[in-house]
Amino acid sequence: MGSVTTKKHQNGLDYVEVSTDLCQARIFLQGAQIDQFTPTGKAPLLWVSAADDYQVGNGIRGGIPVCWPWFGMSGNGGFPQHGFARTRLWSLDSINMHDEIVDLIFSLKLTEQDRQYWPHDTEVKVLFTLSDTLSVSIVNKNNANYPVSLTQALHTYLPINDIHQLSATGFDGSKYIEFGEGPYQQPNDKVNFDKETDRVYTDLSPVQHLHTPTGIIEVSRENSQSAVLWNPWIEKSTRLSRFKADDYLTMVCLEAANVLDDKVTLSPGETHTLTTHIRWV
């Protein structure tokens, strides 16, 4: 039989621990952020920096931070990068276990502080489905009587052993913007890494693969035509908080997103769900 229990990290953060015949997982209420997911008999599917200290008020440097209700900088001075959801305390609304598959739903109640950044009457939830595959969804509903637009991403950190031996496939026919320039046409299906990579892909097919020395990770998306591919490489690694100088060697981010022309615009009463699925092939 599986179990779902609530525990407290030594630094005070509450989390949910999931243990079933199919997987082991851990999800923090701060940010509704999953930092551990390991299918039974296989290697972990998420990466976290050993430099992260799991402090209240900081998003974890790894796992899947939830970037909402904007990705990157908002354009408004003083607004937090990647939104405010990843540092807020979420509520665990429901737990459902069936055939060793666990569904958990977290919701975020906006505070007066949040409404300084986001005055719109919207609902946001994060749904986790945990089996031998990790599925994560951001669910938005517009309760306002006017259209509301937002950008968002599931900022997924993935373990890849050695960045020099990584190849990412599934990019044929797409375009990307990098360091504010572009769009550039993707020249072929494959991406290799020999420098800082920070690409926002558009017109992207729904499935990509990361070919690592120890196996292939499949990352797929629903209701998303855009994704972010990121590795900070050498110089930027020394400037990042809660990140070791050599961490770039063992991680890459491939993030399901709704950004740029793929932003979400919700009519009154409309709902949108962004989903990513991650598994070992």
Rank of each mutant, 00 (worst) to 15 (best):
G72W: 05
V56L: 13
N11S: 09
R86Q: 03
A85K: 04
F37N: 10
G78H: 05
A50F: 02
G62Y: 04
V4K: 00
V4P: 01
S91I: 08
C23F: 06
M73W: 09
G12I: 07
Y54E: 13
T5A: 06
Q36V: 01
G63M: 06
M1T: 02
V66P: 14
S49F: 05
K42E: 08
Q30M: 13
F84G: 01
W68I: 15
G75H: 02
N11Q: 14
W70I: 08
F37K: 00
W90R: 00
P80R: 00
P80N: 00
S91F: 12
P69T: 10
S3C: 03
N11L: 05
T87Y: 04
S74E: 01
S19H: 09
G41V: 14
L45Q: 15
R61F: 06
G31P: 07
V66K: 13
Q30L: 04
S19Y: 15
T40G: 02
G75Q: 05
F79Q: 08
S91R: 09
G2E: 09
L46Q: 02
H82Q: 02
K7T: 09
F37D: 00
G57W: 08
S19L: 09
S3D: 06
A43D: 09
F71M: 08
S19F: 11
A32W: 06
Q24D: 11
S49Y: 01
R86M: 03
G63D: 06
V66L: 15
Q36R: 04
T40E: 04
Q30W: 06
Q36L: 11
H82V: 01
H82R: 01
D52M: 11
P65G: 11
W47F: 12
L29C: 12
F28L: 09
D21F: 14
S74F: 07
I27P: 07
T6Q: 15
M1D: 05
I27Q: 14
G75C: 02
D21N: 13
T20H: 07
G62H: 07
G31I: 14
G72Y: 02
Q30K: 03
Q36N: 08
R26K: 10
C67D: 14
G83F: 01
Q24H: 12
P39C: 03
V18Q: 12
G72E: 11
G78M: 08
S91Q: 15
D21T: 12
H82T: 00
L46E: 03
G31V: 02
G83A: 03
P44W: 02
W90Q: 01
Q10M: 09
T40H: 14
S91Y: 01
N76L: 08
T5R: 12
V48C: 06
A51Q: 07
D52V: 06
T20S: 12
W70P: 14
Q30A: 14
K8Q: 11
I64A: 10
D21I: 08
D52F: 10
Q10P: 03
W90D: 00
P69K: 09
E17H: 13
C67W: 12
M73V: 15
F28C: 15
C23V: 04
G2T: 11
W68D: 10
